[in-house]
């Protein structure tokens, strides 16, 4: 059973009208490992993660969690699957109408039926894990800075101690120091939980810090995968261009010259 990858994608295809976004994605993530998918904007990273989460349904291909097919899963089976997941959204996606602690405890109260008093205590513990005091729990998300919102979102993602955590651009929009703080927190929290993680980013500093393995997606296909240590000597011109952030290379941005 331990040989079965925690997450496996085979030939996943997704299109929006005539535009093919995922064109046969194959990926495997072993249990307890962290895979970071890198790639430019519009290459299908977010769509891929939404397909795994079940927020979008691929037209073709297979997505397995613990060896179980999840495409088309509904009802109780989908609910059981969702309990394995935690997700940190790019814009934090905190619920504005709820206090910070209610955001963190949301999955525990609504999803698992935990009492509010117990859930609040647990939420304060999780806020502590991401370096925020209990007093922050009484604020509303709009009263927090971007970095604090990301930390709260991380606390929410780990609150129910999920087996798999997804990170969508965890450091986008943050200054380099706060980005590094978030990266450290992600590494620390994931180690504590022993969770499997799938992240997408174009921040190479973040990728190097949180990844065990790196995969590069381009035009809806995975074009390279390997251990994070090998990303600098991948021998793949697409990967080289991306990690060095060069305008010249095989990846052509669709920019109209003046």
């Amino acid at each position: 059973m331990n040989d079965v990858p925690k997450i496996r994608l085979q030939g996943v295809q997704k299109r929006f009208g005539p535009k093919v976004v995922l064109d046969g994605v194959d990926l495997e993530i072993p249990r307890g490992k962290s895979l970071v998918v890198i790639g430019g904007s519009g290459t299908g990273k977010s769509v891929m993660i939404k397909c795994v989460l079940g927020l979008m349904r691929p037209e073709k291909g297979s997505i397995q969690i613990d060896g179980e097919e999840t495409v088309g899963l509904r009802g109780d089976a989908r609910d059981r699957l969702m309990r394995k997941f935690g997700m940190l959204f790019q814009g934090a996606a905190l619920f504005d109408s709820l206090r910070v602690w209610e955001n963190v405890a949301f999955g525990l109260i609504q999803g698992r039926g935990m009492g509010r008093v117990q859930a609040k205590k647990l939420a304060q513990e999780k806020l502590g894990q991401v370096g925020l005091g209990a007093e922050v729990g009484e604020l509303f998300p709009a009263e927090l800075s971007g970095g604090m919102q990301k930390r709260v979102a991380l606390a929410r993602a780990i609150a129910a101690e999920p087996e798999i955590i997804f990170f969508d651009e965890p450091t986008t929009g943050l200054d380099p120091i706060m980005a590094d703080v978030i990266n450290d927190l992600i590494v620390h929290c994931v180690e504590q939980l022993g969770a499997t993680t799938l992240s997408i980013t174009h921040d190479m500093a973040s990728a190097r810090k949180i990844a065990d393995r790196v995969a590069m997606i381009h035009k809806g296909k995975i074009i390279w995968t390997g251990p994070v240590e090998e990303v600098d000597r991948s021998g793949n011109p697409f990967v080289d261009q991306f990690i060095h952030g060069r305008a010249e290379g095989p990846i052509h941005m669709e920019v109209r010259r003046p």
Partner: peptide, 22 residues
């Protein structure tokens, strides 16, 4: 609509909460 465009509705789903019900 704001919840939709800021991914809060997706967040509900990932927190085991059905957006229709909630």
């Amino acid at each position: 609509g704001t919840m939709r465009v800021t991914e809060q509705i997706d967040a509900l789903t990932t927190l085991s909460t059905n957006p229709f019900k909630y």
